[in-house]
Nucleic acid binder design. Sequence first.
RNA 1: CGGGGUGUGGCGCAGUUGGUAGCGCGCCGCUUUUGGGAAGCGGAGGUUCGCCGGUUCGAGUCCGGCCACCCCGACCA
Length: 568
Amino acid sequence: MRQSSLFGRTLREAPADAQTPGHRLMLRAAIARPLASGFYTWLPLGFRVAQKVEQIIREEMDRIGCQEMEMPVLTPAELWKTTGRWDALEPITFRTKDHNGREFMVSYTHEEAIHSHAMSELQSYKQMPAMVYHFQSKGRDEARPRAGLLRVREFVMKDAYSFDIDQAGLEKSYKAQHGAYERIFKRMGLNAVSVESDTGAMGGDIAHEFQVLTEVGEDRIVVCPNCDYRANMERATRTPDVPLREDGIAPRSEIATPGTTSIEALQASLKVDADRLLKTLLLRDASGNVVAVVLPGDRDVNEAKLRKILGTSEVKFANDADFAAAGAVAGYIGPVGLRVRTLVDTSVDQRAYVAGANKKDAHLRSVVSGRDFTGETVDVHDIREGDVCPRCKTGGLRLERGVEVGNIFAYGTYYSDKMNATFLAEDGTRKPFVGGSYGIGVGRAVQTIIETSHDDKGIIWPISVAPYHVHVIALPSNDATVRTAADALVADLEHAGLEVLYDDRDETAGVKFADADLIGIPFRATVSKRTLKEDQVELKPRSASEAEFIPRATATERIAGAVRRALA
RNA sequence: CGGGGUGUGGCGCAGUUGGUAGCGCGCCGCUUUUGGGAAGCGGAGGUUCGCCGGUUCGAGUCCGGCCACCCCGACCA
């Protein structure tokens, strides 16, 4: 490919609103361009990368017997109504109608579609296990797209689906996908770790996310430095500290705390640590049910855990009427005497706390859980740095940020039950498919590679996904001798099966080298007046600081060898 | 959806108490250059400053409304 005719130009400066390093480099190196918020066009360089990422995924899916197919982007409303997702997904999906007024959704995902196919294609237990996948655009009307390709509103996902006759079969398929994912991310140069993830409102099943730990990530990941425990914050637990017990606690007593309506203010005025205070939150779920959550003043409530406990899609702060009905006073709420369902977090110990008195300008001292108030014991708190690992029981859990580049989810019969998708089992009865789904976002993976593989000059592509293997630079390209030699080298390299980007532009050395560093092709081969004087070619790996000079006669052979070794 | 910010040539930005729009990069032409984002000369490019309305003799600038984009949070089956 001659760079003089490449569609897509590099930018000396990134647009001001690009924030993360990967976002800036993605734009500067002409990988992709925005068309609207959350909608991106792949430019030719980026498209080549995306295709290589797809090819790696394709090979690893094929390797575990997963078959490629393709389902449409637009899917009929009736299909989504069978699982209730037509309504549930309304706020975050794109919809349209055909000329007869029939409604369609730009697919958010394809579980409904694949189950509908499975029930007609897979009629007998003999046809399972079965696994299929496709690369297809997904539409998600995200409230907040961010950081270039990391979170967009339309993107190509590889989504795979497994169908098994029972839970044991599903676990086998799940394991095969897990293994494939490990190979996929490794091959594309991503250090992705598998972490336990929340299964959302479906509950109870197994799910893992593949997270690349980087500060630009938006997910919070709990990581144990002493063992392999890794979990999404939405699901992470801890081994509780040794419960603190206090005996002979005096009866509770009221204290005057005028104007002291926050944990911080109480800490300051009473001169006590936050963990001696009780934080009581009055919340309401999607159906308007009100619940009080009690936890130590130094702990935060984890909304994902709470939603799951309540079986609701939404948790909001209670309104004034809720406070009145519960007998609570905003700013002075406490669990004692509260007239509402109460959840007590596992972090609350058997010791004396200061809590709100449910009375303006007053708190209670020596409040003891179980003695002064009761409630259901639940784990609804956020893990924080230093907590004790639930697996290896040692301290020092860390919080990191991650980009979720893939997820795998064994949902079992969730969809087949709703859709009545069954097969004929060996015993002659009809049984629901036991399924799983497995997704990878292609564009997000591409930008995550950039986020984690670059220096201050530009991208450093792993050769497995690089847009080209070799960047040939002619210097200057308007010198006939140089031009002839460079043309010949490019022809030889291409003949040897290498992918070559050829900088034949009439630009200065500085411009060409800076662009080569920015675009980040793994090998740079320079042909110049200077190298030709010695009948040489300069070869420099993008990741190396030093170049080497190789004889022109063996240059193709040497470069091809280096590329093949790197690809191996 | 809540909070914050920004909209002026392709990109980065300036534009004073309101007076009729500039700079750098990039782009085009010619010349000289060619190993780390060259130099000189000459040009083009803004439907007049996101859109609509208002105030004013006069609005990029003041006022109101709207839109788009970015950041933080919420949400994310």
